[in-house]
Simulated assay, not measured.
Amino acid sequence: MPFVETRTGTSLFYRDWGTGRPVVFCSAWGMDSNEPRGVMADLVAHGFRAISIDRRGHGRSDDPGLGYDFDTLADDLADVLDHANVHDALLVGHSMGGGEIVRYLTRYGSERVERIALIAATLPFLLQTPDNPDGVPGEVAEALRASWRHGLAAWLLDNGDPYIGVGLPGCDVATVARDAVLASIYNTSRQAAIECNRAVVETDFRAELPAITLPTLIIHGDSDASISLEMGGRRQAELLPNSELIVYENGPHGLYLTHGARLTADLLAFLGDAPLRHAVSLSDPVGYAPQR
């Protein structure tokens, strides 16, 4: 399995499938490299290389207990891209992953990156301040983080349905998939979960977005319970000079679960489609061998 040791000595796990133009996925808060695997498999079938990363404190990566600010996380992303020799990439950031991509570009530039996609990204700024009155009050965010030390399981049960849009048209998600998402977040390092949320809420990207001139695809659901379309996707589109916003009707925050096939189609259109290398007819016999 591929690992890379970062400049801070933290070992990070990443998945690296296929060959061709690279598409690199940065996952949501509490999620690991499993999150986009359906879309990754689609892209590999279309001739792309798909890479996803376990953020520090997530999945199989080390749990150092620190380094959850966006500067350090951007440095981690830079170390993975360098190690994997990535060039001309599409970087795809879901939720918190969007902030990692933006901070990577403002710290390292776009030498390795050709374009970016922001999926339900928690950008540009979530904290309530005098010039951001619709944000989350700081004391509310701090109380929530404190409750997670011993009450994360109860919070996840309360918030799992809004995350996947239970009751919304087209948002039927199998119980096993919903449970896997909740388990991923619950099993994430508690210190990482708390401090990553602090970074997500308190980091202001408003001054950074206008400096990013790469082609940018913004995808946001109009029923996102984690960051609203108005506070997220629409503001991103206003600040990013070379961006296109696609709004998913009845789309929640967990779009990989509810709209995976559509995400694949939109990413392929954004990339410029390539022919399938290994097309399989549903009428053809398909062998199966269990994979460890």
Results as ranks from 00 to 15, higher is better:
T6R: 02
R7G: 02
T8E: 14
Y14E: 01
D16L: 08
W17D: 14
T19A: 15
W29D: 01
P36S: 04
G38D: 12
M40L: 03
G47R: 08
G47W: 07
F48G: 04
I51V: 15
R56V: 05
R60K: 15
R60Y: 09
D63N: 14
D63L: 01
D63I: 03
D69P: 06
D71M: 03
D79R: 01
V80C: 02
A84R: 05
A84E: 01
V86T: 05
V92W: 10
S95N: 07
S95E: 07
V102P: 10
G109T: 06
R115F: 03
I116P: 08
I119S: 03
A120E: 15
A121F: 04
F125E: 05
F125G: 02
P130V: 02
N132L: 05
D134C: 03
E139N: 13
R145W: 05
R149L: 13
R149F: 11
L152R: 10
P162F: 07
L168I: 03
P169A: 09
T175E: 15
A180Y: 01
V181I: 13
A183N: 12
I185C: 00
N187Q: 14
T188R: 00
S189F: 00
S189W: 00
Q191N: 13
A192V: 00
C196K: 06
R198A: 15
V200Y: 06
V201Y: 09
E208M: 13
L209V: 05
L209T: 05
D222W: 02
A225F: 04
A225Y: 04
A225N: 07
E230F: 07
E238W: 01
L239W: 02
L240W: 06
P241E: 02
P241L: 03
L255R: 08
L257W: 12
L257H: 11
L257F: 12
T264G: 04
D266S: 04
L271E: 07
L276C: 13
P285D: 10
Y288G: 12
R292Y: 10
